[in-house]
Computed example of a mutant assay.
Amino acid sequence: MGTISIIGINGSPSDVSEALASRTEKQDAGHFRFIEAHVSNNWHATAELYR
C-alpha cells in the first residue's frame, strides 16, 4: 500500500508505535511494519503499510 513516516516524536518506542498505528488507521490500512527508526533528540520512523 505504501509507506508512512513520522518525525519529531518525543517519548518512548511505544509512543512511536502508537503514532504509526494512528497514521495507519487514517490510511485505511490494517497493519504496518517498521522499516527503520532512530532517535537523536526526537524519534523518526518509517513503516510499510499493509491491508
Rank of each mutant, 00 (worst) to 15 (best):
D28P: 03
N10M: 06
E36K: 11
A45L: 12
G8T: 11
E36C: 04
L49A: 08
R33W: 01
M1D: 14
E25N: 00
Q27V: 06
G11E: 04
A21H: 12
H38L: 03
G2N: 11
S40Y: 02
T3I: 05
Y50F: 02
I4D: 02
I6K: 15
S17R: 13
G30K: 04
R33L: 03
T3N: 15
A21T: 10
E48W: 14
M1P: 14
G8M: 07
I7H: 03
K26N: 14
I6A: 06
V16M: 02
E18M: 08
P13H: 13
N41H: 13
N10E: 11
I35G: 05
V39K: 05
E36R: 10
H38P: 00
S22I: 07
R33Q: 09
G30Y: 02
F34G: 02
T3L: 08
N41F: 13
T46L: 09
W43A: 00
L49H: 15
H44N: 06
S22E: 14
G11S: 09
E25Q: 02
S40R: 06
A21V: 03
G11Q: 04
W43T: 01
G30H: 09
E18V: 08
M1W: 15
I35V: 01
S14P: 06
I35S: 03
E48T: 05
H31W: 07
S22V: 09
S12G: 11
R51S: 12
S14W: 12
I9E: 11
I6L: 12
I7G: 07
I9H: 10
G2W: 05
I6N: 14
E36I: 08
H44T: 11
G2T: 08
N10I: 05
I35Y: 00
V16G: 01
F32G: 05
R33T: 03
N42V: 08
I6F: 15
R51N: 13
A47D: 04
R23P: 01
V39A: 13
H44E: 13
T24H: 04
D28T: 08
A45M: 10
H31M: 05
D15S: 10
E18R: 14
V16P: 06
I7V: 06
W43M: 01
L49D: 11
R23C: 07
E18H: 11
N10C: 06
L20G: 06
S12C: 08
D28A: 12
P13M: 13
A21E: 15
V16W: 00
A21D: 15
N41L: 07
N42M: 11
W43V: 02
F32D: 15
G2M: 03
T24C: 12
I4M: 12
A47R: 02
T3W: 15
D15E: 03
K26R: 05
E48L: 05
V16R: 01
Q27R: 13
Q27H: 12
S5P: 09
A19S: 10
